[in-house]
Amino acid sequence: MIFRPDHKFTHGAETSKMQIEGLNVHIAGQHILKEVNLIIPDKRITCVIGPSGCGKSTLLRSMNRLIDSVEGAHIEGKILIGEVNLIDSGEHLTELRRRIGLVSQKPCPLPMSIFENVAYGCQIHGIRNRRKLKMVVRHYLEAVGLWDEVCERLNAPATSLSLGQQQRLCLARSLAVEPQFILADEATSALDPIASRNVEELFVKLKNDYSIIMVTHTLRQARRIADYVVFMYLGELVEAGLASEVFDNPQHELTKKYLSGAFS
């Protein structure tokens, strides 16, 4: 169980269940996601699998509305977090995004020092107290197992870290704003096997406190860590369920073929 330092952004109870209803996404006239209905379970790892171009990444980018920055993207349907619909959240969007962390495919440190990278989100949300920031930074760097490696050089530019370290730094940065969800878009694909394993283990540890949604290309990784699996094909959600059931006893013909390696 990860201890949370006492900086609270939100008041009252927060739910970490995400409910997607009738989600359709068009980009420049193309129908990328078709009628997706999905419930993301609380405090589990949900892996989204499927061949490339099936809409996995678009689904992920819809969940925090980063899809908005794509020219010509149009989104309809509902993504409910508690009572709020992410799709027409207006000014609440930034607050909702805070609750949904993102770890991207390639580690993406902001152009600042290691310390500032982790503190950035807190500062964005109005925490200025230096002592408190220090505490938060230390706490989350420890949570991702980076503290011992970087405590001597917190003011060095974040780009001076190795790729694996950068990815864990990005994870710490996401955690520092206290999200309930973590979206990971092939978060280990740019890393070497050891760093990749480190991050994977971290996710397993984190699922006690966060709902993790992970897009992955490697079936083996999904088998290792997924609690739930979602299989997508050509923009449609084909099958979703408990990992053990989907992997051992797939219901749909396409899923069977995909899992047996007939296409990828």
């Binding site: 925090n64 980063l66 920055s69 930034t94 949904i100 962390g101 950035y120 989100g121 964005i124 979206l183």
Partner: peptide, 9 residues
């Protein structure tokens, strides 16, 4: 970079 910053809220 913009995405990373936006996803922090």
């Amino acid at each position: 970079l913009r995405d990373a910053s936006a996803s922090l809220g």
